[in-house]
Nucleic acid binder design. Structure first.
Length: 205
DNA sequence: CATGGGATTGACT
DNA sequence: GTCAATCCCATGC
């Protein structure tokens, strides 16, 4: 499968975020299927680009298809894909993967980063800070290109069919919490937080 | 130059 | 459910 091209990322961020579900994130010997994303846009205050162009946010206003990597809570690196044409500040946060290649390497890295000694496979990449630990994505890779740089995003397998996607409110933000800009692969158990899929099932579930 | 906040995680009650 | 760890950067003086 080939990398997504610049035109893929140059679209509105609310199109790109769900379109990334089912694509494959690759870094070195480790990879995973993207199962959870969130959209961020300069027009709403939860987005870092809301404050305008600064040294930090410059990349978000730059060329679509670049990586925006930043440190969260002084602890974790979070990976975003810059979207929309240059001049517009928008990006998609990659929040969870279903591990594909290099699972044992992921486990080794997660343990080295301080995780508890027992890690279920579904916990390897189930969170924005966890997936950067597992794939060893670093702050130094901020502003690298997803089109030909060290971090690659591959298109969906067209034979796999369209994934079923559910939308909901974004996680962990205090501003604009009502926007349903979080996208998950329906029923996938690698997502970073519980999803009310059982809401329509029996309570004992 | 000092300060406050944050797109999280893991451990503990 | 609660809480600390830890650092970059935007803002204000």
């Amino acid at each position: 499968m080939s990398r997504l091209d610049r035109g893929f990322y140059a679209r509105p961020v609310l199109e790109v975020a769900p379109a990334l579900i089912g694509c494959t994130l690759v870094h070195g010997a480790t990879s995973g299927t993207i199962v959870e994303t969130e959209a961020y846009h300069e027009s709403e205050p939860a987005c870092h680009a809301f404050v305008g162009v600064t040294p930090r946010t410059r990349v978000i206003f730059g060329e679509p298809g670049c990586a925006y990597v930043y440190r969260s809570y002084g602890v974790h690196a979070l990976l975003n894909a810059v979207c929309e044409p240059a001049g517009i500040g928008a990006a998609v946060l990659l929040r969870a993967l279903a591990p594909l290649d290099g699972v044992e390497l992921m486990r080794k890295r997660r343990l080295a980063a301080g995780a508890s000694e027992q890690i279920d496979d579904r916990e390897l990449c189930s969170g924005p800070g966890r997936l950067t630990q597992a794939l060893d994505v670093e702050l130094a890779e901020n502003e690298t290109s997803l089109l030909d740089g060290p971090i690659a995003v591959l298109a969906r397998d067209p034979d796999a069919g369209e994934p079923q996607i559910v939308a909901g409110p974004r996680v962990g933000i205090t501003k604009a919490p009502e926007l349903p800009w979080r996208f998950c692969l329906l029923g996938d158990r690698n997502v970073s937080r519980p999803w009310p899929w059982r809401a329509t099932s029996s309570p004992s579930g």
